[in-house]
Structure formats: structure tokens, C-alpha cells
Amino acid sequence: MAGIDIFLQNVANGVLMGGVYALIGIGLTLVFGVMRTINFAHGDFVVLGMYSAVLFNALLGWDPYLSLLLAMPIGFLTGVIVERFILSRVIDAPPESALLATLGISLIIGNAILLTFGGEPRSVQVSYASSTFSIAGVNVSMVLLLAGIATVIMIAALYALLNRTEIGRAIRGTAENRLGAELVGIDTRRIHSIVFGLGVMLAVMAGVTLIPLLFATPTNTGAVFTLKAFVVTVLGGLGNVGAAIAGGILLGVVEVLGASYFMSEYREAYGLIAFLLILLFRPEGLFGRTVKRV
């Protein structure tokens, strides 16, 4: 293959991987945007989604995409419960309290899965796992494309929810100014529960979508996903849902190009370096509005 073809293939891979990263990132960024809470357990909710697909496949023989029908509502409810009983109690405490609380939740989820399923990697075999097709000489993985489509649908749905519905208006109001929202009669406690429920639902969805592609392990994968989600959201702009797509794609491309043209062992590091640079020099994110320096 000529250099330009390799480059195009790399970019395509990066963009597709980026779609998945975006899907992991939106839940985190939504929660941060509204609740100003950095959810450390986000990646573990992704892993929870992966294991739910494993479970539905083992018990009922369902395809991962079919199991979304059950996994997503369960994820939503889990999020609402966690918010009600844990996070709502620390929302007005110093910001580290929420970080530590979600860190605790992260450890509990990861280790509870470890106790239930054991430590060996799990996955769901699907017939289309390794199928690819080619567009203009560029190979595209079926699973990644599906995940990408899921991302786009999810973000469009989220966008519609935020902009076209009454509840979306309340969510945006709460994100903008919590006190002001309460003054006009919005129950921000309820909004927080809903938003955290949505965040967990999105994480679970990302996990289910990824299971044909990746193996799930109880504790390590969660931390990896949480880090990826941080990088995506910080690249895009913390709290900016639409920019999560841009952040995800940017991370995907940076990783793939960095790995193919510099040192492939440091694939994971490129995203982290970009993350640090953005945090330090442009904390509002590449695509975010200018906000007060954190």
C-alpha cells in the first residue's frame, strides 16, 4: 500500500475508534456539565454494561444489541439509585468528596464483578465480530461502524432530549445555574438523579456495544475506560456534550497516528499527554466556550 493509503486507513481506524471513545465520554461529560461532579466510576459502569451483555448472552442467548433493551433501563435505574443514596449527599461538600465517593463506587463495582464472575476475561462471540467491508480502498470494521452509528444516534437523541423537551430545558437550566433553576421551580434534586441515570445508561450502552470487540475484565478495564472518558471530555471540553464526539475522534486519531508514526508502545500515552496539555493550557477544552480557569 502506498503511504497515502496507509495514512487514510489509519485515519479511518482512528475515527472509528474515536466514535467508541466518544460514546464512553458523553455520559461522563453530561454528568459533569450538570452536576459538576467528576464521576470516577464511569468506566466501571461501562464494564458493568459489558458484563450485562455477557450475562444476557449466557442466560438467554441474546445478541448484545438485543440486550440493550434491558441493559439500558437497568443502567438508568442504577444511576438514579446511586445518585439518590450517595451522590446527593455530597453534592454540596468540598469537590473532592464527590470524587472520593465515586472512587469508592468504582472500587465496589469492579470488585463485586470480580467476586461474581471471577477474574478471567469475558466476551460475547458474534458472527459479525471480524467482518469488514471496504470503501474506496479503506477497510472498515463492522463492529466499530455499528458502535459509531450507535454513538451518532445516541448523541442525536440526547441533543433532542436536551433541546426539544421540557425535561431537557430543566436539565439545561440546572447546568446553567442551579440556584436560578430552583428559583423558577425546577426540582434540581430530581434533575440530578435523572442526569446521573442518563450518564450510567450511556456508560452501560457503550459497554454493551463494545463487548463484541473487547474482552471485559473486572477491575483493570474500568480504570482504563474512566481514563479514556476523562481524556475525551477534557479534549472536547468538560460538560460539552456535542464536543465529546470531536474529543473522541481526536483521541482516536491521535492514538492511531501516534502509534503508527512514532512509537507504538506509547499508544496510550499520546492521549494522556494531550489530556495534560489541554488541562493546563486550555481547560475549557478545544471546542468549549471560554470558561473560568479551573
Binding site: 461538600a93 468528596s97 472500587l107 470480580l114 467476586l115
Partner: peptide, 22 residues
């Protein structure tokens, strides 16, 4: 009881600390 899942204790205790004994 927990074998390699012993970080569970850290998770539970940090929640207790954050919520009840900051």
C-alpha cells in the same frame, strides 16, 4: 471471603468516610 477482591473494603470504607465521617 474476598480473595483478590479485597479492594472492596477500601471502596466500602471510603464511602462510609465520605458520607458519615469526613
Amino acid at each position: 471471603t474476598f480473595a483478590e477482591a479485597n479492594m472492596l473494603i477500601y471502596g466500602i470504607l471510603i464511602l462510609v468516610v465520605v458520607l458519615f465521617v469526613p
